[in-house]
């Protein structure tokens, strides 16, 4: 039988035994050295990607967020107990560094939409010569370079707004799309009120942008343990 792994935790004195995970399975805390892994028994080889299962996974990770900063595993991580022990044993210094990084923090998310012009993106039907084709491409290229510059400016601007209030940032810039920026900020819990105030003020200065703020979340974007886990064991 395999184990479904939800997250790694430290300093977890007690865990509510009534917590339910994927498919209603009981969740338990598996103590390995001075760390613990929240797991539940799992009988199949793959986990169905459904809204219910994703929410069950998130609920288990979130259930400990009021007491500690967990390192979440990627949704669908199935392992054996031996693999978990080997992994933790082999990667302990790296995991401790990761815990130190997220300790006392939560993840806050900012997404930004901007209006983009698509004037130069509609292909013209009247292009028959190679020269006019390349000229059209030149104009399109100029447009995309401008969009990229705008996207970088928005990303830099957002970083400046929260500078000093965040411990880390993961930003995904998509210069050619309306959803131009998705940023995750690692914020110390006691700085959240200031962080929110700063963003509320910043939003007023950029009425041309549309914002979505959310959180607090477990530090999903700063855990990065699934990648290491895959490298180590080829777990899929």
């Amino acid at each position: 039988m395999k184990l479904y792994a939800y997250c790694l935790v430290e300093d977890l004195d007690a865990f509510d035994p009534t917590t339910r995970g994927i498919s209603g399975a009981a969740v338990r805390s598996l103590q390995i050295d001075d760390l613990a892994v929240l797991v539940s028994d799992f009988n199949a080889d793959t986990v169905a990607v459904t809204k219910e299962n994703a929410l069950d996974h998130a609920a288990v990770v979130r259930s400990v967020l009021d007491r500690t900063a967990p390192l979440p595993f990627r949704f669908g991580t199935l392992v054996t107990g031996q693999q978990l022990r080997s992994y933790i044993s082999a990667r302990k210094p790296a995991l401790q560094t990761r815990f130190e990084h997220v300790r006392g923090c939560v993840e806050m998310s900012v997404k930004i939409i901007r209006e983009i012009s698509t004037d130069n993106e509609t292909p013209r039907d009247d292009i028959t010569s190679g020269t006019s084709f390349l000229e059209e491409k030149r104009l399109a290229l100029l447009g995309s370079e401008q969009k990229a510059a705008e996207a970088t400016e928005i990303s830099t601007w957002l970083h400046e707004q929260v500078n000093g209030l965040i411990r880390d940032e993961q930003a995904t810039v998509r210069s050619s799309e309306k959803l131009v920026l998705a940023a995750a900020h690692l914020v110390e819990r006691d700085k959240i009120p200031q962080y929110k105030e700063r963003l509320a003020a910043a939003r007023k200065n950029r009425p041309e942008l549309h914002f979505l703020f959310s959180g607090p979340w477990p530090p999903y974007s700063f855990a990065n343990i699934e990648l290491e886990f895959k490298t180590q064991f080829g777990v899929s």
Binding site: L65, V106, H210, F211, L212, F213, S214, G215, P216, W217
Partner: peptide
Amino acid sequence: PLMAEPQIETAH
């Protein structure tokens, strides 16, 4: 109160 359910805030 900071650890309440995550909030999502947007006008769009």
